[in-house]
Structure formats: structure tokens, C-alpha cells
């Protein structure tokens, strides 16, 4: 198999909510870049429509029974409105789809919880909500990640980028590409409170993959998913180099907002704040190849100092000049 469980050369995508504004644009773009990776689309009431470059069905059940595309469908890309996401996920799980991406933002937490528990019962992989998708340069992409011209940011290499922020997933891949490291996989896991795929989940999936040379992880305050990475590494569960940047230290210096998180602070004492996450990862770094970057752009230095080999030449110049200046 070429690629990862999240995206590989057997991946066949069905888009749920296919004829919406964003989804139809993504389908058209993907079809132009990676023809054939998207096999079908689902929009109730639009079955048989020819507005997209892929066949559209009213229900997923009809799509999986379709003699032409049915057997090829194994990955769902969900673009429905927030309150319809739970329904879409259940439709996918009940029709045998085992890898799902929830692109939709603002999924109600309660629905996310139901989804997460159902995912465990069914043994499925779900990425998101609020995922931007996945990019594996040697295979293709799922979702809008990288836009119309993904070659700006992505080139095949050995780095895995895992980020809650979709935008920073691409921005980070591009920063590394300019400095000589290509991407093996970039996965935008989304920043929801209940995250169906966590950093630690991804690390466990890729720990035995010899093509992974190093991991770049972008974290945010809240929850304990970053801390779980430190725990996994300290328990010997992942031994490849990890460079991390945790945003949000500044929020701790802002005027105090509504006192939120008392209860969360009890469940996971000492967890949730950016500085706590940084401390935990730095503690792991004393014994394992883990480095936390102070500034976001120091991630490059971190990967370099961890000894991750460049995939190609550094293309940057000493001093970046502005495109335009009016001084």
C-alpha cells in the first residue's frame, strides 16, 4: 500500500453533501488535480444530476450498490451543515464506510460525542470535525487542503504535519518545503473539543512506517490532546523525531475572560494551558527526540536539530525582500 490508512492508493472517496458551494468546488478541483480519486457524491434530491464530474446519488445506499462505483467507495468526505453531520456519519457507518472526514465546522459537541462513541463501537477512523482534509503528495489529497495549486506547499518527502488548524497545516508544509523538507503526509485533525482523531492516534498509526522521518505537530490550548503525545512518547510508544509548536501562550496574559475550565482542570489537573502543554512536551524531550519551538518559525530549526534529513535543497535566501515597498 502506498500512503497511510488516512489516504492511500486504494482510497475511493464519496462526498456527502456534494452539490453545496464548497463541496462542489473541491470536487471539481480534485478531479482536475487527481482524476478519479473522488468516485461519487451524495445529495438527497439531486440523484442523477450531471452538474458534477462524478455521479450523484440521493442516498449512500444507492451509491454503494452501484455496479460501477459501489465497490470502490471506502472513504467519506462530509460537507453537510453542522446539525446534519451526525446523520451523515451514521449513514456512512451503516453503509460500511470505515474512513470518514468531517470538514464541517461548528458541529455541536453533543453530536461529536455520539459520533466518537459510535466510531469506537464500529472500529472506524474519523478525522474532524473542522478538518481541512489530508494530503499525501505521493498519492493525492482529500478535501480542499492546498487549494488550486498544492505544489506551492507540497512536495514528496519524509515529514508528517499534524495540526488542529487547517490553514497552518498548509502554511507549515510550505515553510518546510522552502527549507528542503518535503511532506509525507499532512493531516488537519481539527480543533474540536471532542476530536475523533488525535495527534496520538496518528502517531500510533504511523509509528512503524519507515517513510516517516519526522513529525511536525501544531497544537493549541484547551483539552489534553497535546499532553497525550508527551505521554505516548514517554511510555515508549513513538520514537521518531517530533518538533512541536503550541500556540496560545499569550492568551494566558490576556485580561481574564469568563472563568471556564474549572471542571476540565480537575479531570486533567495541570493540563489545557499552552504553557502546561509545552512543559510536558519539553519534559519528554529530555529523554526522547522531541523539541518545542518558541516561535512558530523556529520549527524548522527544531527539525534540523533533531537530525531529520533534508529531502531536497534549501531554496531560501539570507534576507527576504518585500515584493513591494512604499517607504
Amino acid at each position: 500500500m502506498k500512503g497511510t490508512v488516512y489516504l492511500n492508493d486504494k482510497t475511493g472517496i464519496v462526498v456527502i453533501g456534494a452539490t453545496g458551494r464548497e463541496a462542489s468546488q473541491v470536487i471539481k478541483e480534485s478531479e482536475a488535480l487527481y482524476p478519479g480519486i473522488i468516485k461519487a457524491g451524495i445529495t438527497p434530491g439531486k440523484g442523477g444530476s450531471s452538474e458534477l464530474p462524478v455521479p450523484v446519488f440521493d442516498t449512500l445506499k444507492e451509491a454503494v450498490k452501484d455496479p460501477k462505483v459501489g465497490k470502490l467507495l471506502n472513504t467519506a468526505l462530509i460537507y453537510v451543515p453542522p446539525v446534519s453531520v451526525l446523520d451523515a456519519v451514521m449513514e456512512c457507518l451503516d453503509n460500511g464506510i470505515k474512513v470518514l472526514y468531517i470538514i464541517t465546522e461548528h458541529v455541536p459537541i453533543r453530536d461529536s460525542e455520539v459520533i466518537c462513541q459510535e466510531k469506537v463501537r464500529r472500529g472506524a477512523i474519523i478525522v474532524g470535525g473542522t478538518s481541512l482534509g489530508c494530503f499525501v503528495p505521493s498519492v493525492g489529497r482529500i478535501g480542499a487542503i492546498g487549494g488550486k495549486d498544492p505544489t506551492v506547499a507540497f512536495r514528496d518527502g519524509g515529514i508528517v504535519v499534524i495540526s488542529k488548524s487547517g490553514g497552518l497545516t498548509v502554511t507549515t508544509a510550505e515553510m518546510f518545503k522552502r527549507r528542503g523538507w518535503g511532506t509525507y503526509m499532512a493531516l488537519a485533525i481539527g480543533g474540536d473539543i471532542i476530536s475523533n482523531t488525535t495527534y496520538a492516534d496518528v502517531l500510533q498509526e504511523i509509528k512503524g512506517d519507515s517513510r516517516v522521518k519526522g513529525v511536525v505537530m501544531l497544537g493549541e490550548p484547551g483539552g489534553s490532546y497535546e499532553e497525550q503525545v508527551a505521554d505516548l512518547i514517554m511510555a515508549g510508544g513513538f520514537d521518531k523525531p517530533v518538533a512541536a509548536f503550541i500556540s496560545g501562550r499569550f492568551q494566558e496574559r490576556m485580561p481574564e475572560g469568563v472563568a471556564f475550565g474549572h471542571a476540565g482542570a480537575i479531570v486533567e489537573r495541570g493540563m489545557g494551558k499552552a504553557t502546561d502543554k509545552i512543559a510536558r512536551l519539553e519534559a519528554a524531550g529530555k529523554k526522547y527526540p522531541v523539541k518545542v519551538a518558541f516561535y512558530y518559525h523556529d520549527l524548522v530549526k527544531a527539525i534540523e536539530s533533531l537530525g531529520v534529513p533534508r529531502d531536497f535543497e534549501d531554496s531560501t535566501t539570507e534576507h527576504v525582500k518585500p515584493l513591494y515597498s512604499t517607504f
Binding site: V152, T171, H297, T316, V320, L323, S325, F327
Partner: peptide
């Protein structure tokens, strides 16, 4: 887009520098 914004800076007498992604975002 960056060219359009630069032209706007020029016609309105705004002082600034315009970069694309060659400059890392946090620089």
C-alpha cells in the same frame, strides 16, 4: 491580490511593505 493592494497603497500614500509566503508567517 497583493499587486492590487500595493497599487492602493501607492494611490493613497500609505507606507508599508508587502510580502508573500517567502517570508515565514511569524516573521
Amino acid at each position: 491580490g497583493l499587486k492590487m493592494l500595493h497599487e492602493c497603497f501607492v494611490r493613497n500614500g500609505i507606507r508599508g511593505e508587502v510580502y508573500d509566503s517567502q517570508l515565514p508567517i511569524t516573521e
